[in-house]
Simulated assay, not measured.
Amino acid sequence: MKLRFLGQAYSKSNNQIETQPSIHTARFLGQSYTRCQPLLSAKSQLGVRKYRGVAYGSEA
């Protein structure tokens, strides 16, 4: 399936970020869960992104 927005074609990117459980817990709607933290910074894993033909991001 081809995706389009405002006449521009694009493909879906399915970036997965590796995480590890932290010692912090949170509570939402009466349920507790353990928060996860990324192993690497999200910027370094995602790389350069494009928006309306202009590249954004860091090349760290």
Rank of each mutant, 00 (worst) to 15 (best):
A42F: 09
F28P: 00
C36H: 14
F28S: 04
P21C: 03
L46S: 08
Q31V: 08
A42E: 07
R49K: 13
V54Q: 10
N15I: 14
R4F: 11
E18M: 02
A9C: 07
A26E: 11
G53R: 00
K50M: 10
Q37A: 06
S32V: 06
N14E: 14
L39K: 13
Q16I: 05
Q8S: 08
S11T: 14
A55N: 07
N15M: 07
R52P: 00
S11I: 04
S32C: 01
A9I: 11
N15C: 07
A42P: 05
L3W: 11
A26W: 04
P21N: 02
P38W: 05
Y51L: 13
H24F: 14
R52Q: 09
Q31H: 09
T25K: 13
S32L: 04
R35F: 01
T34D: 02
S22P: 00
Y33R: 01
Y56A: 02
Y10I: 10
S41H: 10
L6Q: 15
R35W: 00
V48A: 04
I23T: 15
G7W: 04
Y33A: 06
Q37I: 14
T25M: 10
G53S: 01
S58T: 13
G53D: 01
E18L: 06
S11P: 00
K2T: 12
K50C: 06
L40R: 12
K50R: 10
L40N: 12
Y51G: 00
L6H: 13
F5E: 11
T34P: 01
Y33K: 01
R4Q: 14
T19R: 05
K2A: 10
H24V: 11
K43T: 10
Q37E: 12
A9G: 08
Y33L: 05
